[in-house]
């Protein structure tokens, strides 16, 4: 490579770096302004709505899809919100709880014994908050703590919006719902095609072998400890619950988690076998997710159990 070509190479690389950096910043500013207008849709809109109203709420539901689709919060308390999100677990839920002020609040948090004793759970779900990485310090700290930040995100800020752009644009022009009436609960409506698929799956009757070695996942343990301290310092009543499963064969993980939580100040309700004695297929969308009909029955029971007075 002669000097001329070397200079040319340096020039082109510099142009690409500067060009992509500037384009990224323009895109970031644009996406921020779009994102701030979005109040519908799971990944951005729902989060925006929650972050805006979180400190005014009395009752909050957090957790995975089994929180989101199973707890109709409006039936439990008027001033409530369900921030459950598909695919998220302990890290995501705990990070959101840690953004709350010290207002007195009741938090219902879904926990799964399977994830609690999973060896592979590594807190990846916190990345669902990456769109706020460069905009919310508490979220940035948690993502950094779990080392889940994309190393390039300090240079290319738009990485926080990867994969969400189409959804955001769609939700601006065609929102899924009227957010002023939305409380975060997304009922699962099961169509005939899905019902047929579920019937086929259930007929197979395949079960996974139960785990013998049950060690609490370190990230799970870390967040449980943190939440216990946080709840004491910030006037929170945290109720942990496990949502029903169609036919849960392994019980040892439930028992071990129950035992572990007995030592803590958390209230814990295990509803894994909630429908064991009155089970019908129309209560389910799949083995771990309830239909709206199933969710309403569960919500009714949760309301009685948690017993919060409505204003």
């Amino acid at each position: 490579m002669n000097t001329n070509v070397r200079n040319y190479f340096i020039k082109i690389i510099a142009l690409i770096l500067v060009g992509s950096y500037l384009m990224d910043k323009i895109a970031f500013v644009l996406l921020n302004s779009i994102s701030d207008e979005v109040y519908s849709g799971q990944s951005i809109g729902k989060l925006n709505q929650f972050l805006e109203i979180k400190d005014e709420l009395d009752f909050i539901v957090v957790g995975s899809s089994r929180a989101n689709h199973h707890v109709d919060v409006s039936k439990i308390h008027d001033n409530s919100f369900n921030i459950g999100l598909d695919g998220t677990k302990m890290a995501y839920a705990s990070t959101l709880i840690k953004t709350l002020s010290n207002k007195e609040q009741v938090i219902l948090m879904h926990i799964s014994p399977e994830t609690a004793f999973s060896e592979s759970y590594n807190g990846d779900d916190v990345q669902s908050l990456k769109s706020k990485y460069n905009r919310n310090k508490a979220i940035k700290n948690e993502i950094d703590f779990l080392k889940k930040n994309n190393p390039l995100q300090n240079f290319y800020w738009s990485l926080g919006y990867t994969g969400s752009i189409l959804g955001m644009i769609k939700n601006i022009y065609f929102p899924n719902y009227d957010y002023t009436k939305y409380k975060g609960y997304d009922p699962l409506v099961v169509n005939s095609n899905q019902k047929e698929i579920l019937e086929k799956i259930l007929k197979r009757n395949t079960t996974k072998p139960c785990k013998n070695k049950l060690t609490l996942n370190p990230i799970y343990a870390h967040y449980l400890t943190e939440l216990e301290i946080f709840s004491k310092q910030n006037n929170k009543r945290i109720v942990l619950f496990t949502a029903p499963i169609y036919n849960d064969v392994c019980k040892s993980d439930n028992q071990k988690l129950q035992k572990f939580l007995q030592k803590s100040t958390f209230e814990y309700i295990d509803y894994t076998d909630f429908f064991k004695h009155n089970n019908t297929i129309d209560l389910w969308k799949d083995r771990t997710h309830l239909s709206d009909k199933g969710a309403q029955l569960l919500t009714f029971q949760l309301k009685k159990k948690i017993n919060i007075k409505s204003n």
């Binding site: 020039k11 142009l15 690409i16 060009g19 992509s20 990224d24 895109a27 290319y156 990867t162």
Partner: peptide
């Protein structure tokens, strides 16, 4: 050189976003 850099930068942006 300018167009090539623009194409590369824009493709990088698309990669970042999608």
């Amino acid at each position: 050189i300018v167009k090539t850099s623009f194409i590369c930068s824009f493709t990088i942006l698309l990669i970042i976003l999608f």
